[in-house]
């Protein structure tokens, strides 16, 4: 008998892991419903809300207090309750990547994670990566290679690209395609992105 038949359905997935998986854009669709049911069961033992609760989020190296209902996504908390509007809401369900942030250094869709889940973790939004006056190497490279038009998707790509460069200083074009595969652009700005990331990788190694 295969061992997992003994386990309750979906075990091995904590609610947090579930959200993390979704957040990383890697959830196999077939798993979602089953895992979501489990998440509900597990959540029942740790009831918060339904009213607002106060939480502290660590955003771009600073602690920020915010009052949210437990159902509020991290994206909505960042955008509506705090003043971090760099992360965009486009699909609000884990498809487009416009809301991409870093959670403990890993890219995640902030629309698919609850604000309360992010407490105690290191959140980095696009605003934490550079400013117009002090651009990161990747931001500069995106501008140089014109990897943006309307720019609405751009913050998500910058965060996803930064996550790639943080773990892989020598990405290939395939690595870039894969790392940016969870982000969509309507204006069609993909062409500049591979060279932008490659050049930024070089610059970060002091090669440019």
């Amino acid at each position: 008998m295969p061992t997992d038949e003994k386990k309750p359905p979906g075990s091995g997935f904590s609610r947090r892991n579930f959200l993390k998986t979704i957040g990383a854009g890697a959830a196999a669709t077939g798993l979602v419903r089953e895992v979501a049911d489990t998440a509900v069961v597990e959540a029942a033992s740790d009831v918060q809300g339904p009213g607002e609760i106060s939480i502290t989020l660590n955003i771009n190296g600073k602690s920020e207090k915010v009052s949210v209902e437990p159902r509020v996504t991290l994206l909505d908390a960042l955008r509506n309750r705090l003043d971090h509007t760099g992360s965009k809401k486009v699909c609000d369900r884990g498809t487009c990547g416009a809301c991409t942030i870093l959670i403990d250094g890993q890219p995640a869709y902030s629309c698919s994670m609850l604000a309360v889940e992010a407490e105690g973790r290191k959140i980095t939004t696009v605003e934490g990566l550079g400013t117009p006056e002090q651009l990161s190497a990747l931001q500069e490279s995106f501008i140089e290679h014109d990897a943006q038009q309307c720019g609405f998707c751009t913050p998500g790509f910058i965060v996803a690209g930064t996550a790639l460069l943080n773990t892989n200083p020598n990405p290939t074009a395939d690595d870039v395609n894969e790392a940016l595969g969870g982000n969509l652009c309507r204006c069609g700005t993909y062409s500049g992105m591979v060279p932008a990331i490659m050049e930024a990788a070089k610059a970060m190694k002091g090669g440019a």
Binding site: R79, N80, D83, H84, T85, G86, S87, K88, K89, T125, V126, E127, L129, G130, T131, P132, E133, L135, Q139, F142, I143, E144, D146, Q148, G151, F152, T154, P155, I158
Partner: peptide
């Protein structure tokens, strides 16, 4: 290079979607 590149790549650009006024309703 486009002049609004710096505000777009850093998330500093404020789109209509990003406007937040005091007491704003949704």
């Amino acid at each position: 290079s486009r002049l609004d590149g710096p505000i777009k790549t850093t998330g500093a650009a404020k789109y209509a979607y990003d406007q937040k006024l005091d007491g704003m309703l949704y």
